[in-house]
């Protein structure tokens, strides 16, 4: 079951095509990465999903239904550019945002109380937003995003400007929410975070979908049959005839296997030649490498 389906979505501003026939699905209960360089069209896509703007062409389905006036109550969106009304009291502010998301006064109050207990900030209710530090405001923004228990959570660069403590706090909350069945779209251009958090990604560049799939599958797809061997004795002298070494260090080598060659045979060769192997593993490309490679090849093609 997909929580979100995009089919050939197009969005044009003046003559600039921001989103160009993009299609992908976000499976329910997954953490999904929406990746792309700055200006690739990520924010344009998110604004379409959150019904801030409308797509010129194509279809967007949330939980099987086309986007409608009820959509905003099912989505929690934390924009990259986020702020709060500085003069409002924290409690009033959250009440306001929660009620705009369709919660009744009573529900809103209870939900805010729960989160305040959880983050141990119950004494913040009567404080003005401007009295809070930046990190404290970020907590409030996060609570505001999820206060109405959305089915789909969209986080646009959620960790930008966050201190390490809040970063971990929100990471934990993201995982917890996922366990409760919430689907999460995580938009960023920071690849190390994607690798750590996301299970599935779509890569957007210049408004086009250039790569889509599970992180593991994508890595498999882009692997180049390279293996790293660590050892603590001397290498056999005839090793270069047996294997294509592309990198060599004092206690490790990186070997390129040709297609169809079995890595077990190689390992067996080294062991039978008396090499003391401490580690042997396949080198998978990092998402960052794939990202850069994909973007540059895409750009050359255009």
């Amino acid at each position: 079951m997909n929580i979100l389906q995009l089919e050939d979505v197009v969005k044009t501003y003046d003559k600039h095509v921001a989103v160009d026939k993009v299609s992908f699905n976000v499976p329910e209960g997954r953490i999904f990465g929406l990746l792309g360089p700055n200006g690739a069209g990520k924010t344009s896509l998110i604004r379409i999903i959150t019904t801030i703007t409308r797509a010129d062409e194509g279809r967007v389905l949330l939980a099987g239904e086309p986007l409608n006036s009820n959509t905003p109550t099912q989505i929690g969106y934390m924009p990259e550019e986020r702020g709060l009304y500085k003069k409002m009291k924290v409690g009033d502010h959250l009440m306001y945002l929660a009620q705009l998301k369709g919660l009744s006064k009573k529900e809103a109050k209870a939900a805010i109380g729960d989160w305040f207990d959880k983050f141990e900030i119950s004494d913040w209710w009567g404080k003005k937003v401007e009295e809070l530090s930046k990190g404290m405001q970020q907590k409030i923004q996060f609570i505001a995003t999820i206060i109405h228990k959305p089915k789909l959570l969209i986080l646009d660069e959620p960790f930008s400007g966050l201190d390490p403590i809040n970063t971990n706090l929100i990471k934990d909350e993201i995982h917890q929410l996922q366990q409760e069945g919430v689907s999460i779209i995580f938009s960023t251009h920071r690849m190390e975070q994607v690798e750590e958090i996301c299970e599935e990604i779509v890569l957007i560049n210049k408004g086009k979908n250039i790569l889509n799939g599970e992180v593991k599958a994508i890595k498999d797809q882009f692997k180049e049959n390279r293996f790293r061997l660590d050892f603590d004795t001397d290498l056999p002298t005839a090793v270069t005839q047996q294997a294509n070494i592309i990198e060599q260090g004092p206690n490790h080598i990186v070997i390129q296997l040709s297609a169809g060659e079995d890595s077990n045979n190689l390992l067996r060769y080294f062991i039978s030649n008396g090499l003391h192997v401490t580690a042997f593993n396949e080198i998978l490309p990092s998402l960052n490498e794939i990202f850069i490679q994909q973007v540059t090849t895409f750009e050359e093609a255009v």
């Binding site: 959150t50 019904t51 801030i52 905003p72 989505i75 969106y77 934390m78 924009p79 550019e81 986020r82 702020g83 709060l84 009304y85 500085k86 945002l97 705009l100 998301k101 923004q141 505001a144």
Partner: peptide
């Protein structure tokens, strides 16, 4: 003020501009 304090995008994800 709404624009410079960056609350506006949060708002319009809930209500129509």
């Amino acid at each position: 003020e709404e624009k410079t304090s960056r609350i506006v995008e949060v708002m319009i994800s809930s209500v129509k501009p």
